[in-house]
């Protein structure tokens, strides 16, 4: 089994128009999906990242500079990540398609390179 990381890109303000009830039902979808992955033994873990700009560290002329943002894409940011187990990319894609985030944001799927 290979391991894959799903980088969850969020559209900025993508959820801000939702009412509390609608938000809760979106969250239920995500939790239901995670619970299902856990039950199938595929879920390796994940973390949500804070909904605020992070810091970018760049090598500049006077050493390492710290910037708040900018993001590579101005209208989205990585909201979190999850890792799952799958046989290969085909299966990982199939699984990632069932993740609610595929509907609400963008998923970047990368295979984890196990360094032995």
């Amino acid at each position: 089994m290979a391991q894959f990381m799903m980088l969850l890109h969020d559209k900025l303000d993508g959820f801000s128009a939702l009412s509390h009830d609608e938000m809760m039902s979106v969250i239920k979808e995500y939790t239901a999906w995670t619970e299902k992955m856990i039950a199938e033994g595929r879920f390796l873990g994940g973390e949500k990242l804070k909904d605020e700009p992070g810091r970018n560290l760049l090598a500049g002329t006077d050493g390492i500079e710290t910037h708040a943002g900018p993001f590579t894409e101005t209208n989205e940011m990585i909201g979190g990540y999850m890792s799952i187990e799958a046989a290969d990319y085909d299966e990982a894609v199939k699984i990632a398609k069932t993740c609610p985030h595929a509907k609400y944001g963008r998923i970047e799927l990368r295979e984890i390179d196990p360094i032995k």
């Binding site: 809760m24 939790t31 995670t34 873990g45 994940g46 973390e47 949500k48 979190g80 999850m82």
Partner: peptide, 10 residues
Amino acid sequence: ASRSWPFDGI
């Protein structure tokens, strides 16, 4: 809960 359960399960 809604922030952490999607990533940790219930």
